[in-house]
Computed example of a mutant assay.
Amino acid sequence: MAGTAGHAPETTPGDKGLAADGTIRREGAPERVRADFAPVVEAARVRLAGAFGPGRPHSAYLYGSVPRGTAIPGVSDLDLLVALDDEPTARDRAVAEETAAALDSAFPVVDGVGLLLSSVRSLLSEAERHDGGFFVACLCTPLFGDDLALRLPRYRPTSLLARETNGDLALALPRWRAAAAGATTDEARLRLNRRVARRLVRSAFTLVMPRWGGWTSDLDRSAGLFADHYPDRPVRAAQVRAAAVLARTPSPAPSGSAMLIEDLAPWLAAEYTAVHGTKAPRPAG
């Protein structure tokens, strides 16, 4: 999402993504959506408003490079969150997959559409206060409906926020290894590498976020900040920078998957636990 031709920096060098009171600013806005992406955003708004039945959903949001204004036509994906008044059903998830696939097929300006489903209850719950709640309040831009951010607190770059956003990295390792073993096509490996690389760069950033004292979603900047705070780990810094490249311009090479999943990820998960602890368990069901 960052660092390729035509990319504009997401923040100025001295900007830590904070409001005047030291809380994390919401990073996207409707006016930042570039003209190339306006048609697919409008189509998403229309389709989602009627996709889940009468009176549903409660609200919908954009997140990622599109509402930050840094998306690259034909390279970036479109990321969406839908909040339902009740818990998502199997049918809701099937509808979400069909809607995402239809948008992806109809609009070549995006390279993939991701559509997350959650419930209002979950996003506003105490368990999700520093994960899903933070995500909505600071990383999501309203598409339609009542903005849940108005019912959530302001957030600061604390160790608690670091732990609750990415303190479950170790739990992802078995899933990633299984996905890597089952990825038999270049397309499957490319998408896996991009997904894993993004998560690892963001985890590397949130590992050092409280010490830096700010927020950014820029992958290059995140990798640089990790390197700044781990000067005694040049190999890990180089791996995080390589992951930032793979996140923007993914490769299907199995060597990329091996570096990410078998080398960087286990070290980062262990370091994260040592520094911030592990994410609080979520209620069953």
Score class of each variant (00 low, 15 high):
A94V: 03
R282T: 05
E10I: 05
A8F: 04
H229Q: 14
T158E: 14
G182P: 05
I261Y: 09
G69A: 07
R47Q: 10
T141E: 11
F226G: 13
P30E: 05
R56T: 05
P57D: 02
K279T: 08
P174M: 03
R195G: 08
G69D: 08
A90P: 00
A178F: 00
E31M: 04
L171I: 00
R47F: 00
D15A: 10
G224M: 10
A44H: 04
A178N: 04
V196R: 01
R189C: 09
G285W: 12
D36A: 10
P153S: 09
D79M: 09
L264K: 09
S76N: 04
R199F: 03
L200Y: 04
W215P: 03
S105I: 02
L219N: 07
F107M: 02
F135R: 14
L173D: 04
H276T: 06
W215F: 15
S255G: 15
P54Y: 10
L160P: 03
G133V: 07
V275Y: 03
L200C: 02
P157Q: 09
R129K: 05
S65W: 08
H229E: 13
P231C: 09
R129N: 02
V41F: 06
P234K: 14
R93L: 00
R202A: 14
A258Q: 11
A284M: 04
L169F: 06
T273P: 01
G55H: 07
P67W: 14
V41D: 04
R34S: 08
P153W: 09
S203T: 15
H7V: 06
L225P: 14
